[in-house]
Design a protein around this nucleic acid. Structure first.
Lengths: 195, 195
DNA sequence: GCTGTGAACTTAACAGTGTTAACCAACGGT
DNA sequence: ACCGTTGGTTAACACTGTTAAGTTCACAGC
């Protein structure tokens, strides 16, 4: 295993265990039996290292979602199972999920555009399903891509309430998640109401 | 103005201008013409100081939302105007809004429960409106409080996509926000579809 | 076989961080 | 006149990210 990968591994371990601020270059170095400065031969700086971890996590999420997809069922069912897969992944790998949102594009000015390809792929996937549902007159949407972003935003919002432990203690997580999913999906399907 | 308030003021200024990590105790102190250690006479530590800022921001959001409320219109319209007010506030005071989500309850073990009163108040406000809509057979909800959390989560998700500059550059912010609001509200109102 | 070059790595240091212990000076109550 | 509290200080500790300079070492060209 190259030193670069070694560094990525131990960084991730520290990041998941203690959070970004506690993951220091020196600690990473020590765990990799190397000096802190060596890390700078493989990564521009700490942010750059974080970025590499973000990439990994996005790729993993991408994979999970694709694997959960069954194209033979109805678009509504596809959306539901994707939402489930997303939530499950986030709750089972909370820190890993949160890595994805640790860095914001604006703060990474010269971040190569292709690196966002992975996440864009997911949006295209969602948009595709929504488009199919739209054609079958199941979904009430104006623009599938915009709706894909909306869908993801909503699910992320719901997930982050749980992960941030911000949910009212009187409400069980599962109940919240289940009702939230209903609301979200409901918001996309066609309204048959006459007026 | 007491030193405590002075510290809060300059802290906020630094926080908004450069972010949490760049807001250092020494810089705050210098700006307040005082030594760094003096801050510890008024705040337990840096987190505690941040917490005080969070409180301020939540109180402000609370105020904004309440002021935007017109109880004479229909629950649907009330929800819509609340959503608008929330989004407007977040977009006009982005950093201030983000302060609210900077600290997570789990990491503040001994954080006094009453401090969360302000945000709980907002949830109760939302739940009240939803409950009224439920009684008038306008909303399709099981539990108003759960739905209130869902609603907030969804809106926060949408807002944070914008603030995190994660929206596809091909999509204008306003279009996304407007469609997202439609989807969210849609998810709450009753479905007249027969089966 | 010798030399030169470049990569991988280290040591030492800089400037800055949060935080604490010890001290001091002024004020109100007794 | 003393005493305790309040609000401030200085000096220091143990860290942090980052860089400049130096070292070791494998391998290519002659």
């Amino acid at each position: 295993m190259s030193l670069r990968e070694e560094i990525l591994d131990v960084s991730k371990e520290l990041l998941l265990k203690h959070g970004f601020s506690k993951m220091s270059m020196r600690k990473i170095a020590k765990k990799a039996n190397v000096t802190a400065t060596s890390i700078y031969l493989h990564f521009k700086n700490k942010d750059d290292l974080l970025l590499a971890l973000v990439e990994e996590s996005i790729a993993k999420l991408n994979l999970v979602l694709r694997n959960s997809l069954d194209e033979s069922v109805s678009p509504v069912a596809q959306l539901e199972s994707l939402a489930d897969a997303y939530v499950d992944y986030a709750l089972e790998n909370p820190q890993e999920y949160e890595i994805i949102y640790m860095v914001r594009p604006e703060e990474m000015p010269k971040y190569p555009r292709e690196k966002f390809q992975q996440v864009r792929q997911i949006y295209e996937l969602l948009a595709g399903i929504i488009r199919k549902g739209q054609e079958q007159q199941l979904f009430d949407v104006e623009d599938p891509l915009v709706s894909a972003y909306t869908l993801w935003a909503q699910i992320h919002g719901v997930v982050s309430v749980i992960l941030g432990k911000r949910l009212d203690t009187r409400i069980p997580n599962e109940r919240f998640l289940s009702l939230a999913k209903d609301h979200i999906i409901q918001g996309f399907i066609i309204q048959k109401t006459p007026a």
